[in-house]
Design a protein around this nucleic acid. Structure first.
Length: 576
RNA sequence: GCCCCAGUAGCUCAAUGGACAGAGCAGUAGCCUUCUAAGCUAACGGUUGUGGGUUCGAAUCCCGCCUGGGGCGCCA
């Protein structure tokens, strides 16, 4: 084996993937494999690739002059590991975090704008845990994109018209005229909607009354319009309550009813341009996507853009909405946070936009798809079946449970503080399961799991943050100035700093791939590392120099955990 | 029939094509006169659905199959 010319290869550095090992690593397998191929091509019999890689790694490690900032180099099994100088690196990481403060983890401004549409609730209907997943994911996604350096426009699209609204109005007029919602507006709206469906199921002949009412609404009869306006407002107020509870805001809200007329006009345009086929009155207005795109295999199939009776469908309004978003905001990306069942539908919408002469807009559209929330036993959440967990109930139960726990764990807090802690912990616990798995996985909602605040859950991370805060609160001096630690670092200190140092890179990766999960995982690992450190390393009682260095590390860890939690839409409490 | 997704420990889930597949929950055995035990430690727990292929190297990429879920012309 030779010492001659190995092929050139790209060197990719990664963190050394072992706990307590602290540095960067690369391997020489690719170069070794390339070398072996060349040898074989020349009729020679090379050594096995792992052996060649090991030899290269050895040679490199011997020849290498240690770059500054590194402590030692190591060659093992074909890998080359460069270990950081822990003391200097610690100072750099900690100083950087404390300088950046709340902006630690944030990236440079990218000069790109992303519009994210999420939540999309229906007025006159309930708000359940399935809807929660959308809001939680959409909000976290916006936070993460913003942190990564994008300009983000948070858009909501409220569905305030349609058959479900008419059914609700019919039931209200007939059985609840003059009634008003109580404090829990959304629940009441949902109850009346479920009741309407029940009545119609029991007496199908009543459907004709609903159709009559729909016709009157379509005619814009003042009495009906006034009722619609008034009742719609109740739902909107209910949504505002929910978004306030969840700590979610929107920059712009689109309403279904605004798009009705543009939608009808757009359909006429599609027909004129020969994109849509008008089969009325026998059939609806359709866009034969596969035919128009010349696809032989069924791919996009057929999109129905208008009912045969001329009334609007989702597509009737989604098409003008897609265009309106570009005209209003000209985003570089237009993201739709919508569940996976609408995948084909959204692809149809995007293709239709392209066919209408806006291929550049269509390319900027992206479906952020996520799986639904089920109940145990693979039971779908459906208000008609009565299998529904309302968000209001979940929040109330979780707050109640969290309040019991905080009373037991920390009886010194004032009642007001306890309420606030319970609120923050409960919301974190509720949001966490939505963020702690791939969006492609179904979430099975389970009351026991939802109300369990131990282990891998938001309260674990929040508690680590509280512990860090607790140490800092008891520090009777100002935070020590920047220093290079003089004590030998404990492995748990190294692990903690290692996780902190990865945050800016992981924020970029999470934004790039639109995966909040990366930050959820990181936040958990960081909290775990802090709890290990907390158990192993005294801070306040350490000797003066160790104490100073550790206090700064605790402050940095606290900041890091708080920043990650906020990106996930979870609040970091000061006490628990 | 066509298309999409999932399948990893008893359960819920992680895991840049890379080094020994990691956590939590449940169960077992321990740790509170020491910065809050919503915590920590230890042991236990795996043929990554299955059969091929690509690769120096596969839970990860490709092909087939199995199981479960979802979508597919006037629901939203």
């Amino acid at each position: 084996m030779s010492h001659h010319h190995y092929p050139q290869g790209n060197i990719e550095w990664n963190p050394i993937p072992f706990a307590g090992k602290w540095g960067i690593s690369t391997s020489f397998f690719q170069i070794a494999a390339q070398w072996a191929r060349e040898q074989r091509a020349q009729g020679e019999t090379p050594l096995p690739v792992p052996q060649i890689a090991a030899q290269i790694a050895n040679q490199v490690s011997e020849a290498l002059t240690l770059p500054s900032g590194f402590q030692r180099v190591e060659s093992v099994n074909g890998y080359l590991n460069l270990y950081f100088d822990p003391l200097e690196f610690t100072r750099r990481v900690v100083d950087f975090v404390l300088e950046r403060g709340e902006r630690f983890g944030w990236g440079e401004t990218k000069g790109k704008r992303i519009l994210v549409e999420f939540s999309q609730p229906n007025t006159h209907k309930a708000f359940h845990v399935g809807h929660l997943r959308n809001v939680v994911l959409g909000d976290a996604l916006c936070n993460i994109l913003e942190a990564a350096g994008y300009e983000v426009i948070r858009a909501n699209y409220i569905n305030d018209t349609g058959l479900h609204v008419i059914k609700w109005l019919w039931n209200y007029q007939k059985h609840h005229a003059g009634e008003e919602p109580g404090e829990d507006k959304t629940r009441w709206m949902g109850d009346l909607y479920a009741e309407a469906n029940k009545r119609l199921e029991e007496n199908p002949q009543l459907e004709s009354e609903v159709r009559q009412l729909y016709a009157r609404w379509d005619q814009r009869e003042p009495e009906i319009m006034a009722l619609w306006q008034k009742t719609r407002q109740w739902s909107l107020e209910g949504f505002d309550q929910i978004y306030a509870t969840l700590g979610v805001r929107f920059d712009h809200v689109f309403y279904d009813h605004e798009l009705e007329k543009p939608g009808q006009e757009l359909v006429e345009e599609l027909i004129r341009k020969g994109i849509a086929v008008d089969e009325r009155p026998e059939g609806p207005v359709i866009v034969r996507l596969d035919d128009l795109l010349g696809l032989k295999k069924e791919t996009y199939r057929v999109l129905v853009v208008l009912r045969s009776d001329g009334t609007s469908l989702y597509a009737t309004k989604d098409l003008p909405l897609a265009i309106k978003k570009f005209e209003m905001f000209n985003p570089d990306r237009s993201v739709y946070v919508i569940d996976v069942r609408q995948s084909l539908y959204l692809q149809q919408i995007f293709k239709t936009i392209a066919l209408m002469g806006h291929p550049e807009w269509a390319e900027r559209c992206y479906h952020f798809s996520y799986e639904i929330v089920n109940l145990p036993g693979n039971v779908t959440i459906a208000s008609r079946e009565g299998t529904v967990v309302l968000l209001e109930d979940l929040v109330r139960e979780a707050r109640q449970r969290a309040l019991e726990v905080v009373r037991e764990k920390n009886p010194n807090l004032s009642p007001a503080e306890m309420e606030e802690v319970a609120r923050v912990v409960a919301l974190g616990a509720i949001k966490y399961p939505m963020l702690a798995r791939e969006a492609t996985k179904i979430v099975t909602f389970d009351w026991n799991a939802a109300l369990d605040f131990n282990g891998q859950a938001a309260p674990y991370i929040q508690y680590a943050h509280v512990r860090a805060n607790s140490i800092l609160r008891k520090m009777d001096t100002p935070l020590p100035a920047s220093l290079v630690p003089s004590h030998e670092l404990h492995p748990t200190e190294i692990q903690l700093i290692d996780w902190i140092s990865r945050i800016p890179g992981e924020v970029q990766r999470a934004a790039q791939e639109m995966r909040p999960l990366y930050l959820t995982n990181l936040a958990y690992e960081l909290a775990r590392a802090f709890n290990d450190f907390y158990a192993e390393c005294p801070v306040l009682k350490a000797d003066e120099e160790t104490r100073a260095a550790r206090l700064r590390l605790v402050a940095a860890a606290k900041q890091a955990m708080a920043n990650l939690l906020r990106m996930l839409g979870i609040l970091p409490p000061e006490v628990m």
